[in-house]
Nucleic acid binder design. Structure first.
Lengths: 223, 223
DNA sequence: GCAATCGCTTAAAATTGCCTTAAGACCACG
DNA sequence: CGTGGTCTTAAGGCAATTTTAAGCGATTGC
């Protein structure tokens, strides 16, 4: 899921980007209206987060131009508290929702999810499972059987990635890019170290095949 | 007591929010039907105030969907229509009461109080516990064993937040937003200082695991 | 069967993030 | 206007996490 944030305040943009990436979104950021518009038209996004006040083009204008070009990407406005009256104009221009700053991050997430699942299938619970292993994204917990397993951030991220692609083979390259955010060259053995840690903590013996090694390719989570 | 207002007119929403907050309610506001529905399903509210006319989903549809999902939260409609037929439909859909706009704020308050004390939950005492630690929201007291522990406002709020989510991992982000009401960026060390104060006052040694640190994520209250 | 490659395991270095303390800012109260 | 308490900021020390590195065992291809 790729999102685009059009927001000129670097602090807020960074905050949003980081938070959303932790929720497994791929996030691009544009700092001005024209830059954002160009990006939004250049490639397909699942959703746009647009600040109301922007240098170059206002958020409203960005929205209008997109809709005029028959771009129907869901769009949520981020608007300052006292500008709420304006947002009616925004909704008329084809925005799907708006949220007042300051807002709770969870509320934003909730609204994003609403937009993303409206056209598609209903509510995906953020919970993954393979065999006796259950991973809960919201509370950042992992259980095997009834027992809770304490994992570090990276361990959790790696397991989450494998479980999100259960049944599929994850190539080392993809894992490094998505879990470690390393996009060029990979010659380290980090993945191996972490797979080892995961298997140890989850007490997976050689006969357990929930986390399989695909030699020469990568790894796969399988029931 | 947390209420949710689903109302698209910003002026009315602000008016209600402010008035109710002065009455010591915690108030969330959603501006559209879908956003409100999502919020209402995402967390438990003591009561919902729902406008009849909403963008996205009508108040009636929100109500129907909630009840269909076995959500029994008391719900009061705010309706501008004097057409009695509509409100009957609302009550049949599972609403608990309705009030016609314009209304006197005192009247609304009175109806809210009726709903909150009358039916379903007979005054559930707001009380949370982890191990030997008991927190009473109503009297603002905390005990460990039989001994009363004096906490400051923020200490209490932090402990309350953790206990309300007992068993779950609370991210620093969520804590900062919900306890401190700080949005965008949380690079302060306030949480650490307060966790330290809490543990000290509650005399939790290293071996006590009621308030655990989840490194890189946040904290969790656990039995 | 042998060499080469790949993955597993362990240990230690580098880094990050939390704990703790102290001091200043702020506020309510006398 | 001072006092006491609460809240926030900042910094050093320390411990857990993350990364790097290297030796060993297993698997593959010839």
């Amino acid at each position: 899921m790729r999102l685009l944030i059009i927001e000129d305040e670097p602090g807020i943009a960074r905050f949003l980007k980081q938070g959303l990436e932790e929720e497994a979104f791929a996030v691009d950021v544009a700092g001005t209206g024209p830059a954002g518009l160009a990006l939004a038209q250049a490639q397909p996004y699942a959703l746009l987060l647009v600040d109301w006040m922007l240098p170059g083009l206002s958020g409203l204008e960005v929205c209008q131009q997109l809709r005029a070009a028959h771009n129907r990407t869901p769009l949520i406005f981020l608007t300052a508290r006292d500008a709420v009256a304006d947002t009616i104009a925004g909704l008329q221009a084809g925005a799907n929702d708006y949220i007042k700053k300051p807002f709770h991050f969870e509320e934003l997430l909730e609204r994003i999810r609403v937009q993303l699942r409206a056209p598609g299938p209903p509510a995906a619970p953020e919970r993954f499972q393979v065999g006796p292993i259950v991973l809960d994204v919201a509370t950042h917990q992992v259980h095997k059987g009834g027992e809770e397993i304490m994992l570090t951030q990276k361990e959790f991220a790696l397991l989450e990635y494998l479980l999100r692609h259960k049944g599929k083979v994850c190539r080392r390259q993809s894992i490094i890019e998505n879990v470690w955010d390393i996009h060029f060259e990979y010659n380290t053995g980090v993945i191996d170290v972490y797979m080892n840690a995961l298997r140890k903590k989850l007490k997976l013996g050689k006969e357990d095949e929930y986390l399989q090694t695909i030699r020469g390719i990568g790894y796969a989570a399988r029931d």
